[in-house]
């Protein structure tokens, strides 16, 4: 590819979205989270800790910004309606937003990794290979969602994290990460793998509902939906379609319409063209209290 060729045929080389030349087939894992039903109970976060062998770092390290929660509940407060410019934490209560790796289609973290430890999989996931990671932390710096977590300590050898008998509850399908590697939400890739093996052995594709992520499984209000976006029968596909959120657009058509729509679906920081795979459904209630 010479420079002249590149300049003359720029329209051929220019890509808006990586899926344009490699369509996801037969799988594209995606999620939708209904913020209206989310109560901020943190069950998803706890389930994630249990499923993915995430170390509980303790209060001190947490305060130093060394927390490891792949799934975190972000809290937002509206302005104090009755008293503008008033209290920081007004009476209507917090709004919650579960935030984890958005498995971007054009992931900013992937392009900056110096050793290609984080890659895109054919299923549209953003993989993280611990053995390959050298801990440069560029990916975390470049992540717009700040959902990558770094192992500052060798937690497996730290008795306060997993005391001897607690080792027994570690999930054997997930690596226990050592010091100096980056980690993040994987959409429970071990469950995806297992389901794909079963499906392949039976000569079929993975059915809708066959895979549940740990957070989805634990959610008491069913706020989280996970599935195959390519499968037109899947719940996640239907939700994305109903909300008119298209994965390969950085500006959704519905947002361009005059007067707007009543649809609640949106993706976070869509304008950065990372094309995240998680759609959030806006909260309906102005005040929850």
């Amino acid at each position: 590819m010479s420079v002249t060729n590149l300049l003359e045929n720029w329209s051929q080389f220019r890509h808006f979205h990586p899926v344009d030349d490699k369509p996801h087939d037969p799988y594209k894992w995606a999620m939708s989270i209904d913020l209206d039903t989310c109560t901020g109970c943190n069950a998803c976060s706890v389930a994630c800790f249990a499923e993915n062998n995430i170390p509980v770092v303790g209060k001190d390290k947490f305060e130093h910004g060394q927390q490891m929660h792949w799934m975190r509940i972000e809290r937002y407060w509206d302005e104090d309606v009755s008293n503008p410019g008033g209290r920081d934490f007004p009476d209507q209560g917090a709004q919650f937003l579960p935030m984890m790796c958005q498995q971007c289609e054009a992931a900013p973290c992937e392009t900056v990794c110096p050793v290609a430890a984080t890659n895109h999989t054919p299923d549209g996931l953003n993989s993280q290979i611990y053995n390959r990671c050298i801990g440069s932390r560029y990916c975390s710096a470049n992540c717009p969602f700040k959902v990558r977590y770094f192992n500052w300590y060798d937690y497996p050898t730290d008795d306060s994290v997993w005391p001897a008998e607690m080792n027994q509850q570690l999930n054997p399908d997930v690596s226990v990460r050592s010091k100096g590697v980056m980690e993040k939400c994987t959409f429970c890739v071990q469950r995806i793998s297992a389901a794909k093996v079963t499906a392949k052995n039976e000569g079929r594709l993975v059915h809708e509902g066959e895979i549940q992520t740990a957070c989805q499984q634990a959610c008491p209000t069913n706020a989280i939906t996970f599935g195959n976006l390519v499968d037109t029968e899947s719940r996640v596909h239907k939700q994305w379609e109903a909300q008119r959120v298209e994965i390969d657009k950085d500006k959704q058509e519905k947002d361009e319409e005059k007067g707007g729509t009543d649809l609640r679906g949106y993706r976070i920081l869509e304008e950065l063209r990372a094309y995240p795979s998680v759609m959030y459904l806006e909260r309906v209630r102005e005040s929850a209290v």
Binding site: T121, P122, I129, R132, D173, V189, S193
Partner: peptide, 8 residues
């Protein structure tokens, strides 16, 4: 042959 196929 994608990485996550074999790497946990």
């Amino acid at each position: 042959n994608d990485c996550w196929q074999c790497h946990k």
